[in-house]
Design a binder for these strands. Structure first.
Lengths: 198, 198
DNA sequence: CCTGTATTAGAGGCCTCTCTCTAAAACAGT
DNA sequence: ACTGTTTTAGAGAGAGGCCTCTAATACAGG
């Protein structure tokens, strides 16, 4: 009933992610994406309302992809310490498997123009965040982390520390070393072990 | 013997840092900097060879400012564990005192156009890095961190973990909580304490 | 006061990017 | 074959940013 598409949304987003990974969000221009897949600029505008929408989709698809497995890992084990370690491992393993998307994740939503997003895109971002926060909060309660510093320490151990390890290597353009997952898990365990002692 | 300057280099860099802090490196345009201080664009070009040079100076002045106190903190105490904790505290305290520069530091040199820097700027960046690496390496040896994973764990404890804490708040636009320094020091201590146990 | 120099002042060219608009193309169903 | 719909295809306007260039300006020293 209609002409078949030569360039679909996923293909364009893939190209945009690649551009963002090795050039930062500023390198994601409509012209660059079009050229990367060999399409005229009109085809990109047919899929996305504008550059703002494209950047929002790049960010949202990547974070949602990441958060999907992350929330799963957070609830993967009845023992909260083991669940935390599994989550930390997941962050590193996911980044190893998806280095370009990991490079996107090292930026923030603001770098992808969050201030100008549509209400729909903003809502999607908040929805994903609240779901992840809920899973972290549940784990925090299971670990007895009741006050703000303790909750923040948990977040550091779960997400920020693994991401830092990833950042150090991805930003340098090198692949993650083989011991990355083990190192991350040890650090996370160390941060959780001493939490009750203080 | 000459007309006195109305806009000096430091003033222009201050404006550029402010723009970068709340708009990312992309917001640092020659026109924006000129407008921010009320100067014509020609005055900006009189101080900087071009946008590439301006971005490089923004990054280098900020990192050098940060590294100055950082290397001092690394050698501030003969006991390596105490020196490490002092360094971690310094990272947070410096960010609290200089929130705009801290926001710049959360990006990377690549985001400030490192690929197009002059040889001179690149050399300055490497010089600062090697000095800092040397101080970290000395501390690593004092702590018995000989292999790659142990050295990386030390770097995480010293710099990356404090920076993560800063990132979480600065990126959200909020000030650092009062307990930030204490929390950071506890986390750093926990990571170092268990290092020998593994 | 006169001269030399560093700086301001801003107009204007060039380039890139965003976005719009029109026309053509390719296919499914009748 | 015809129709309707989606998509490609690409030209072109408008805006903004980088950079250059020339003229004017303000001061120090003789």
């Amino acid at each position: 009933m209609a002409r078949p598409p030569r360039f679909d949304t996923g293909q364009l987003l893939d190209a945009a992610v690649r551009l963002a990974a090795d050039g930062g969000p500023a390198a994601v221009t409509m012209a660059a994406v079009a050229q990367a897949v060999g399409a005229p600029s009109g085809s990109v505008y047919h899929r996305f309302a504008g550059r703002t929408a494209l950047l929002a989709e790049v960010w949202l698809r990547t974070t949602e992809h990441f958060q999907e497995g992350c929330t799963a890992a957070l609830g993967s084990d009845p023992d909260p310490v083991r669940a935390a370690c599994a989550t930390a491992r997941y962050v590193v393993a996911w980044s190893r498997a998806h280095p370009e998307e990991a490079a996107v994740l090292l930026y923030g939503a603001r770098d992808f123009g969050r201030a100008e997003w549509s209400a729909e895109h903003t809502a999607r971002a908040e929805s994903g965040n609240t779901r992840l926060f809920a899973a972290v909060a549940a784990l925090a309660e299971a670990l007895g982390a009741t006050d703000d510093p303790a909750r923040e320490r948990l977040t550091l151990a779960l997400v920020d520390l693994p991401m830092s390890l990833v950042r150090r290597h991805v930003r340098g353009g090198r692949p993650l070393p083989p011991y990355a997952e083990d190192l991350t898990e040890q650090c996370t365990a160390a941060l959780l072990r001493d939490m009750h002692a203080v």
